[in-house]
Structure formats: structure tokens, C-alpha cells
Nucleic acid binder design. Structure first.
Length: 271
DNA sequence: CCAACGTCCTGCGTGC
DNA sequence: TGCACGCAGGACGTTG
């Protein structure tokens, strides 16, 4: 499931492969992937445009194409695949961008992702509602204590809220809380200043380490050259229920709330 | 404003 | 062997 480190890895690879290149033509195989957007207009507006830059905001990938921006979100299983030649198009490919010497495929088994083109001047509401970038200096104690002060919800749910911090998903939320020694069910408004400080530092540290390791491949995530990430080898709690904590040897437990699973150490992380 | 919940979607693992 | 079922979960719309 592409979260910030996976999306950042993909952006870096897209910069090397398609930034500065011109979209000769594009095809949309699944118009519903545009979520109500007009696929004919997409094709019309994107064709012939040079990709000026590739950027990330939260889990969104943004291509600047002069007349506007192409914005994609990979959802759960979305991936970009660079093809050197026009070989067979794999199942679940939703779109294809053709360049002079290669094609870029957008493939998404479960189609939770999305792809849209916004012309200059159009508001991109999905981006406007995003919270702070974890690596920015605005993500500090003042910001997080102001927001968490009135939030009684479990801290793990707050970490997953993209309008507070942009980019954290279910895997890194558990890893961040483990490193910060905070129980996932702890209420946001009840966290001490010391815990909030640890939460911020752990968020930055875990995400940076994961970017350095090209993200986490559990099942679907692949880089644009179809290689896996490496951070799955460094996970401490996610998917490790029943194992013992490498710090205190207590059992790693799995609980479900807010519709998703959380993993934590029953010894290190107390409410 | 905040929170809770249903919806979308396919592949895979499990149990009978 | 086949089939039903539950699970994985990011964003968003609806409801309270």
C-alpha cells in the first residue's frame, strides 16, 4: 500500500525516467478511474505536453505539464510501470502514457487509486485539504499540540488523518507509535508534551529510514522497474503479532479499531 | 466543527 | 476439487 516513502520512491524514479519527456499520446482503459472526470478531455489536454516536473504532496503524485497538472493517487495497489518496448499490456492496466522511446503504464488491481488532470486555475480540492508534510519544519510541537489538544480519538487514527499530517498510512502508523513508545489507542488530547515530541521525532525518523530503503513491499508495491522496496526487513511490529519485541521481549499484539488493524508491543506501549 | 460508518475493488488464504 | 467467505485498507460521501 503506497504511503509517503513508497510514493516518494516512485516520484524519484519518475523524475529519472519521464521528467523532461513529452507525452506523445495517452490511453485511458478505465474511464471510471478518473472519478467522474472526462477521459476524452484528459487525453486531449495531456497529449503533446512535456512533463516539466514530478512532485509529491502527501500520497499524491503531481506532474506539471504546463497547461496544468496531472495528479494521481495509487490507492492500495496502484503502480507505475516503465516499459521499454510496447510489449503485452498487463491485466489491470488503467492508463498508458506513450513517450518517444518508452511507455509508462498505470496499473491498479483494486482500482482504489485515481488519476485526474487539472487545468491551470482549477482548484485541486484533494490537495488543498492536506495537512502538514512530515519532513517540513512546520511539522513541530506547536502545530501538533494545537491540533491534538481537542482530539479525543485514538492517536493512531489521528496519524492516519491526511488533513492533519499528509502521507502516513497503516503500516507506518504502527511503526511510528512503536518507536515513540505510545499505545495506538491513547487519546490524542491526553498525550503528554514528552510523548508528542517523541511522536514527531519518530514520524520523521521512520519515514526517512523508509525512504532510504525505497519503501515497504508486503505484497503489491513495486518500484517503476518492478523491484521491491527493502523496509519490510526493518519492520518491528506491523504484521508481527505473536512475535516478541526485540527491545523488551514482550508479545507483539494486533488489535482492530477504526476499521483497520494496529500492531503494538504490549510491554513498550502502555496507554 | 468532529466522529462513525458504509462503499468501492480483486486476489488470496482458510474452512468445509 | 470447488465454492463461500473474510480480509487487506485510502479516500470520500453520508449521516448523526
Amino acid at each position: 500500500m503506497p504511503e509517503l516513502p513508497e510514493v516518494e520512491t516512485i516520484c524519484r524514479e519518475l523524475r529519472k525516467t519521464i521528467q523532461g519527456h513529452t507525452i506523445i499520446e495517452c490511453e485511458i482503459f478505465r474511464p471510471d478511474y478518473l472519478r467522474g472526470g472526462d477521459s476524452d478531455q484528459f487525453i486531449q489536454s495531456a497529449s503533446g505536453r512535456r512533463i516539466e516536473s514530478v512532485d509529491r504532496r502527501g500520497k499524491y503524485i503531481i506532474w506539471e505539464i504546463g497547461v496544468g497538472r496531472i495528479v494521481s493517487h495509487l490507492g492500495m495497489t496502484g503502480k507505475y510501470i516503465v516499459q521499454d518496448e510496447s510489449v503485452k499490456i498487463p491485466k489491470h492496466t488503467v492508463a498508458r502514457f506513450k513517450f518517444r522511446d518508452k511507455s509508462l503504464l498505470l496499473n491498479d488491481v483494486r482500482r482504489f487509486g485515481r488519476l485526474n488532470l487539472y487545468l491551470n486555475g482549477e482548484t485541486i480540492s484533494a490537495l488543498e485539504s492536506l495537512g502538514v508534510e512530515p519532513f517540513s519544519e512546520n511539522f513541530d510541537l506547536k502545530y501538533i499540540s494545537t491540533i491534538f489538544k481537542d482530539r479525543k480519538r485514538p492517536v493512531k487514527e489521528l496519524l492516519l488523518d491526511q488533513s492533519i499530517i499528509a502521507g502516513i498510512g497503516n503500516i507506518y502508523a504502527s511503526e511510528i507509535l512503536y518507536r515513540a513508545k505510545i499505545h495506538p489507542l491513547s487519546s490524542g488530547s491526553h498525550l503528554s508534551k514528552a510523548k508528542l515530541k517523541r511522536l514527531i521525532e519518530s514520524t520523521k525518523n521512520i519515514l526517512e529510514l523508509a525512504v532510504d530503503n525505497a519503501g515497504t513491499t508486503i505484497s503489491d508495491y513495486r518500484r517503476v522497474d518492478e523491484k521491491t522496496g527493502n523496509f519490510q526487513n526493518l519492520l518491528k511490529v506491523y504484521g508481527k503479532e505473536g512475535c516478541s519485541c526485540e527491545f523488551c521481549q514482550n508479545e507483539i499484539k494486533k488489535i482492530v479499531f477504526g476499521g483497520r488493524s494496529a500492531f503494538f508491543c504490549s510491554g513498550c506501549q502502555k496507554i
